[in-house]
Design a protein around this nucleic acid. Sequence first.
DNA 1: ATACGGTAACTTACCCTTGGGTCACTTTAC
DNA 2: GTAAAGTGACCCAAGGGTAAGTTACCGTAT
Lengths: 191, 191
Amino acid sequence: MPREEREAQLVVAGTEEFGRAGYAGASMVEIARRVGVTKPLLYQYFGSKDGLYLACLHRAGGRLTDGVAATMAAGGEPDQMPLKVLSAIFTTFDHDRYAWRLLRDATVPSTGDIAAAAADYRRRLDAFAVLGATQLLTSRGLADPADIEAVAQVWTGVVDSLISWWIDRPDEDADAMTARCARIMGGLFGW
Amino acid sequence: MPREEREAQLVVAGTEEFGRAGYAGASMVEIARRVGVTKPLLYQYFGSKDGLYLACLHRAGGRLTDGVAATMAAGGEPDQMPLKVLSAIFTTFDHDRYAWRLLRDATVPSTGDIAAAAADYRRRLDAFAVLGATQLLTSRGLADPADIEAVAQVWTGVVDSLISWWIDRPDEDADAMTARCARIMGGLFGW
DNA sequence: ATACGGTAACTTACCCTTGGGTCACTTTAC
DNA sequence: GTAAAGTGACCCAAGGGTAAGTTACCGTAT
């Protein structure tokens, strides 16, 4: 099997395993085993556990920030943005549901390349969340910066929860998730 | 120092370290070091890493379920319950903010005593969340069981996010957090 | 009062498994 | 025949876990 293809397989397997067990809990031999390959090949291609994690992280982070950036750039009513962003995330990650977790893994070492890269992706996403929260809160007459930050952080937590729920229900596709979220938000908040 | 007091110190340190780094990422020697003690004493008192984690988990889980149970038992309007529960959680864990994370640590081994105990506490809390979500959604004319489960899970994720935000702002006390949440929910949802 | 035995708190130094990482080698395809 | 894909067997550090000993205190008997 050509290297490029094998690397792609390993990144997918790594994303699932890192997403499931966290950086600290994931095992390189287990990731290799999933693909039907042995550890040295994994090291030949990615150099180290950090190298593999970074490859997984960059793929996930890049797709995520691109998708959200496109949605935010399109604009719209503040009330509509959360659902639009959710729809983009669900569609992008329908077959890659663990990817989101890599950006928010608490078990990565607190210093080093991984922490820096993950913090950078989080920072970019947080900037979008803060932008959306600002629009939403100011439209309601709330302007406390700390309130905005809290809402932005809770928003990322909501996405986290929805993805966790979704991971446990493989039969629910992206459109069904989006419809569910639309129904719930309409019912609970009148959005 | 008497054993009881030392154990309490170690449980507090363990809760912070497990909460920060996760079960897999936390180190026993680091937990001992925080208290100014060495590893064997930790093992003499708690037997194993699992033993210490269980001690931390039971303290956190017990306080949490008790507090939420008392709040839910008091009853009230469905719209009011989320804020009441948040207030109870903030008050109970003002000086113990990492405790909540122990119940939701994804890095604990998937089988064994810890997983079972954590799942049990989560189950009890989820039951309250599902109860609250049912009341809230039915009051809005939504009855899909999957919607209710999703809302319940998102609710726990919201609590998670708020606590993470709070951990990063040690100067904000429980009352300020409660007031902030009241203000935000009032502004965003008209609750 | 003091010597003494026992117990609880605590440490140093070690063992051993797990898992990240590497080397030398074999197979396969062009 | 060579370059790339791939492997078995190994090394080593980190960290969970333990054995044996030391200190300090407390009750008790002389």
